[in-house]
Design a protein around this nucleic acid. Structure first.
Length: 790
DNA sequence: TCACGGTATTTGTACATCAG
DNA sequence: CTGATGTACAAATACCGTGA
């Protein structure tokens, strides 16, 4: 069976089971209520429905079984998922849903007729790409060949002894060693309204039902194992898909004539967000999120892909030293001219805006021309398997070094003012004599030192803020100080009325609440306060900000800004294919977008990925890949991110292909794109960062997170264009995070696992900022719409 | 337990600059 | 001229502590 091998490969052959979509309790509603070609009127979706559905989804017994006539499946057979302990409630039941079986990605389960007449009906939505998590079964033997997880540079295994200290940044990773594997694939219909939308403002949303959809217990099931390895090749979704969202941004792709081989074939990209595997005897906190799911913790013997360089601590040190602290440190921020002594600057040739101060003369780049300097130059039998072994030989020769605090570098040349007006309406054209002389850190430092704190203590206190925040606050404090100076007011000790007046100006200018709040925070951090109260803690400030919030409410979209199916379709054709012939630009864009989609990571996290052998592992057969960020990278959310620092990808139908459909699906394989990209850039690379510039003038240099965001937007836009559709307006790279994670939730991935994959500390952030209605239909349509012909 | 406030950090947008 | 990149600023996102 052609699909057997493919699926097994896609899973790396080691996964005990795969959850193929949640047994959505609302799926049946959709199934009978929405036809494939039916346009879904998103406007008809009552937001209140989301909340109701959220409750409905708490049921561990899906109702879809009721409508599943003809399918030899017990009504409760899907309730096996409602087990948090890792055991199936109902034994070895298949972890498939009707849609799963209808989907080409469905896995046949012995004893179950997966070829129900109802299967393959128009219930399937071609556009839907679902994410699923796979967890190895507790205690399940692992026959995986993809055991590189243990070779993670953060792993306690390998050449590094147990007692060997880990890098401080990786230490937290050992708390959790859950292997989170997200499988993104298509052709599985999300239950109508099967989302769990939580009201904005809701902060702690446990969403226990989500956990109930995890097929943890299915590990013990042989059937599940078969299910995993033997995907059904039954009727694929041959219908047109419905649109996830009826907003103007989501046009019906019906006219896009997405070939079933592309749009409906199961795109089965497995993503592991693998926290570092923990050695069997390694200290492990055993947090609830770990719950013995990690095979290594359970002592599961795993094969290891021996690679000396992979776990060589020297490699890590080498890699670690290649980044100046946070990867975002590559972003050069100008610091307020008040922070540093001014010197004559240069004026924009166009008389434009404020110029960025020149940076310190010490470049953060130092070139290592010695092959021995770079671990990547060592022969590595496995690591960075690029298909062409020669590629790894030519890898990174430029090492980035420098102080970890390179994010804010001292200017040796002061900026010259002009151009863009300052926030608040004041301009930058005032004479230098009117400029403040102390700002930001300096002001706070003076205040703290005046309180009797030693200099080094003050320095440590001030280092609590990230460089980006320091820079941000410095700019805002400078603006405030300038405003005060113009009014002959001491910014450090001014009255509350002055502060609030300043903030009022910001509000009058139409700035958002978050911006004004940040200004208030910046002022509060420097201002001496009022008695024992800081500016921010003053009751009137609180009330003022409350008023700002009322006047500047933040609205967030309910629906995704773009259609994932259209994008995936576009990525599978020109100009993104054939991958071996396209320009480096399109290869870069496609690789970046695929990685962003399957990893659910921020661009800052993606920017931190490294091609160093200790951080990148690509199987030569294209079956899988593991990526780790540079250990020196400090993510935004430290605690959450350290749970899932590494990203593991599984190939999507690596060759040889047994059918055109497999070959077509393989076009969206992230491992394939990644291998091609790494190979293609190996010769031009001037940084160990995974993503490097493709432009000639800066060829091979590390990409900034900001530029990566542009890449993602460009890729989405180009994919739309190549699909024959107009790209959506107001594209945001960050939206990929919300769309893919929302898809994951719809497919039944638990909130906990989504949060872990996306480095969210709690479901709150996800539900508050990212969750989108990616369902394929509304309750109204499902219940009252035309009945589906079957 | 949960909602909210306070704070920190990251991402997006607009525009300038530069190189091909 | 055009596209890629850099920069400043605005906006959005994220998390922790606290109190009801």
């Amino acid at each position: 069976m052609s699909g057997d091998r493919a699926a097994a490969t896609a899973h790396g052959g080691n996964e005990g089971f795969i959850l193929l979509g949640r047994s959505s309790p609302v799926r049946s509603v959709q199934g009978r209520g929405v036809t494939a070609n039916q346009e879904v009127d998103r406007a008809s979706v009552d937001p209140g429905v989301f909340y109701k559905l959220g409750k409905e989804l708490r049921s561990s017994i899906p109702v879809d079984c009721v409508s599943r006539g003809g399918v030899g499946r017990l009504p409760d057979e899907s309730t096996f998922v409602a087990c948090k302990s890792g055991r199936s409630l109902h034994g070895d039941l298949p972890c498939t849903t009707p849609q799963d079986r209808e989907s080409p990605v469905s896995h046949e389960t012995p004893g179950h007729d997966v070829r129900s007449p109802r299967c393959g009906t128009a219930r399937l939505a071609a556009h839907e790409v679902l994410a699923t998590l796979v967890h190895p079964p507790p205690g399940a033997p692992d026959t995986s060949e993809e055991t590189y997880v243990e070779d993670s540079p953060f792993s306690g295994r390998g050449p590094r002894s147990l007692g060997e200290p880990l890098h401080p940044l990786t230490r937290g990773s050992h708390r959790t060693s859950c292997v989170t594997r997200i499988c993104v694939y298509g052709c599985v219909t999300v239950g109508v309204g099967g989302h769990v939308l939580v009201p904005y403002g809701g902060r702690s949303l446990a969403l226990p039902h989500a956990r109930a959809h995890k097929c943890v217990g299915a590990y013990d099931s042989e059937e599940c194992d078969q299910t995993l390895r033997r995907p059904s090749r039954g009727p694929s979704c041959r219908s047109s898909h419905r649109q996830p969202g009826g907003g103007s941004l989501h046009k019906s792709p019906r006219g896009s004539s997405i070939p079933p081989s592309v749009a409906c074939r199961h795109r089965f990209t497995v993503l592991d967000t693998c926290p570092p595997a923990v050695h069997q005897g390694h200290l492990h906190s055993g947090g609830p999120e770990c719950s013995g799911r990690h095979p290594v913790e359970r002592g599961t013997p795993r094969l290891r892909l021996a690679s000396a360089s992979c776990t060589d601590i020297a490699d890590l040190d080498q890699v670690r030293g290649t980044v100046c602290g946070s990867v975002r440190g590559s972003r050069k921020r100008s610091v307020s001219p008040v922070v540093f002594p001014e010197s004559p600057g240069r004026t924009s040739a166009r008389g434009g805006r404020l110029l960025t101060p020149a940076l310190a003369s010490s470049t953060p780049l130092c070139v290592s021309t010695s092959p021995s300097d770079s671990p990547s130059l060592r022969p590595n039998s496995v690591g960075t398997a690029l298909g062409d072994s020669g590629g790894s030989q030519a890898l990174v020769r430029v090492m980035v070094s420098g102080p970890a605090s390179a994010s804010v570098r001292l200017p040796v040349e002061a900026p010259v003012e002009g151009g863009r007006p300052s926030p608040g309406g004041w301009d930058n054209q005032t004479s230098s004599g009117n400029r403040p002389t102390a700002v930001g850190l300096a002001a706070e430092r003076s205040r703290l030192e005046a309180s009797g704190l030693p200099h080094d203590v003050v320095a440590t206190i001030q280092s609590a803020r990230a460089p980006s925040t320091i820079a941000s606050y410095a700019a805002k404090w400078a603006a405030f100080q300038k405003w005060c100076t113009e009014r002959n007011v001491q910014a450090l000790s001014c009255q509350l009325a002055d502060v609030l007046s300043f903030l009022q100006i910001l509000m009058d200018r139409g700035l958002a609440f978050s911006t004004i709040k940040t200004y208030a925070a910046a002022i509060s951090s420097c201002h001496q306060g009022f008695g024992d109260r800081s500016v921010f803690n003053h009751p009137l400030t609180k009330r003022f900000l409350k008023g700002v919030r009322r006047n500047r409410p933040v609205s967030r979209p309910l629906f995704p800004q773009w259609d994932l199916t259209v994008v995936l379709h576009g990525l599978s054709k020109a100009p993104f294919e054939p991958l071996d012939q396209v320009s480096l630009k399109f290869l870069s864009l496609k690789t970046a977008l695929l990685l962003a989609l399957v990893s659910v990571k921020r661009v800052s996290d993606l920017t931190a990925l490294s091609v160093a052998p200790a951080c990148l592992r690509i199987r030569e057969d294209g079956g899988s890949a593991v990526l780790c960020p540079n250990p020196a990278f400090v993510p935004k959310s430290i605690n959450a991110s350290f749970k899932s620092r590494s990203i593991s990808l599984a190939g999507l139908f690596p060759p040889p292909h047994n059918s055109e459909e497999e070959a077509a699906s393989h076009l969206l394989c992230p491992v394939r794109a990644l291998a091609r990209y790494v190979s293609r850039t190996s010769g031009i690379r001037r940084s160990q960062n995974l993503f490097v510039h493709y432009r000639e003038s800066s060829l091979g240099q590390a990409l900034t997170a900001q530029r990566l965001s542009h890449w993602l937007c460009d890729a989405i836009s180009l994919a739309y264009t190549s699909s024959g559709q107009d790209p959506p307006e107001a594209l945001r790279a960050h939206s990929a995070r919300g769309i893919s994670s929302s898809m994951a939730l719809h497919s039944g991935v638990s909130m906990e696992d989504i949060c872990q994959a996306a480095s969210w500390a709690s479901p709150c952030s996800f539900t508050r900022y990212y969750l989108r209605d990616v369902s394929s239909g509304s309750i109204t349509r499902s219940v009252l719409g035309p009945q589906q012909a079957e």
